[in-house]
C-alpha cells in the first residue's frame, strides 16, 4: 500500500478509480456462484445422495397377479391385523419349492434362497424408521383406501424398479419422494387414483408414474384431508 499522508486527504478519491468495475464483476461472480450452487443443489446433489441398487431377484408382479388373480394371494391380512407386506419364503414356497418355469430369476430364487433356506434381502421401498407405526389394516380395511392409492400400479409391473438408497439415512428415495424438491401432489390427487378404470389396469404401470412421498407431512396431510381432522395426535403413528 502507498504511504498515505494523513495531511493529504484529497488524494484518496483517485485511489477509488483503481477499483472501478469491481462491483459489477462481484455481482456477476455472485450470480455465477449462485447458478453453480443451483446446479449442484438440483442436479449433482441428488445424484450423489442416492445409491442405485437392483433388487436381488427381479420379481414379476404382473405375472403373479395374472396367475393368482389378486394381490391377496401373497399380501394378505392376518387375523390380528398384521399384513404380509413383504411375504417371506414361507409364502413363496407354497408354489416355488422347486422351479416351476425356466425364468432365470425364478431359478436364481429357488437355488439361492429356497434350497439354502435363506430369506431374500429385498430392498423395501417403503421401509420407515422404527419410530413410525403404520398399520395396513387401519388404512386398507378401516380407511378403505385402495392399494393403488399409495403403491400405484405396482401390481402390473413386470420388473422391479431399481432401489435408490439414501446414503445418509439408508432409507429408500421413495420416502422423500423422487423429486428432490420434496414437492409432490397429494396421493389423493396423484395419477394413481385416476386409475380406477378396470381397463387401465391391463396396462403396465406408466413409466412416468411417481410414487407419492411418505414423509410425516404426507401422512398428516392425508389424515387432515381424509379424516377431516384439524390436528392429528402424535400417538396415532408414534406408539
Amino acid at each position: 500500500m502507498s504511504q498515505a499522508d494523513p495531511n493529504h486527504k484529497d488524494h484518496q478519491p483517485a485511489a477509488d478509480n483503481r477499483y472501478a468495475g469491481l462491483l459489477p464483476l462481484t455481482l456477476f461472480l455472485a450470480c455465477v456462484a449462485a447458478y453453480v450452487s443451483l446446479l449442484i443443489g438440483w442436479e449433482l446433489f441428488p445424484r450423489l445422495l442416492y445409491a442405485k441398487h437392483e433388487q436381488p431377484i427381479d420379481f414379476n408382479h404382473a405375472l403373479h397377479v395374472d396367475q393368482l388373480g389378486d394381490c391377496e394371494g401373497c399380501h394378505w391380512f392376518r387375523e390380528d391385523g398384521g399384513f404380509s407386506g413383504i411375504p417371506g419364503n414361507f409364502t413363496c414356497t407354497e408354489c416355488h419349492m422347486d422351479a416351476i418355469g425356466y425364468d432365470p430369476e425364478e431359478i436364481k430364487f429357488v437355488e439361492q434362497y429356497v434350497y439354502k433356506d435363506r430369506e431374500v434381502d429385498w430392498y423395501v421401498y417403503s421401509r420407515q424408521p422404527d419410530c413410525v407405526f403404520f398399520s395396513h389394516a387401519a388404512h386398507v380395511l378401516g380407511g378403505e383406501i385402495s392399494c393403488e392409492t399409495c403403491h400405484g400400479d405396482h401390481g402390473y409391473s413386470e420388473h422391479l424398479r431399481p432401489y435408490y438408497e439414501n446414503r445418509i439415512t439408508g432409507y429408500s428415495r421413495d420416502i422423500w419422494g423422487e423429486k428432490i424438491s420434496g414437492i409432490h401432489q397429494a396421493p389423493w390427487e396423484a395419477d394413481a387414483v385416476a386409475h380406477t378404470d378396470e381397463e387401465e389396469y391391463e396396462q403396465p404401470a406408466p413409466a412416468d408414474f411417481t410414487m407419492p412421498s411418505m414423509k410425516m407431512d404426507d401422512c398428516a396431510a392425508c389424515h387432515y384431508q381424509m379424516k377431516g381432522v384439524k390436528r392429528e395426535g402424535c400417538f396415532v403413528c408414534h406408539k
Binding site: A30, V32, A33, A34, Y35, S37, L38, G41, W42
Partner: peptide, 18 residues
Amino acid sequence: GAVAGGAVGINFTPVPWK
C-alpha cells in the same frame, strides 16, 4: 461476492433442507 452468491443460491436448492 462469490461466496455470498453461492450461499444465496444454495438456499434456493433442496440441499440445506434435505
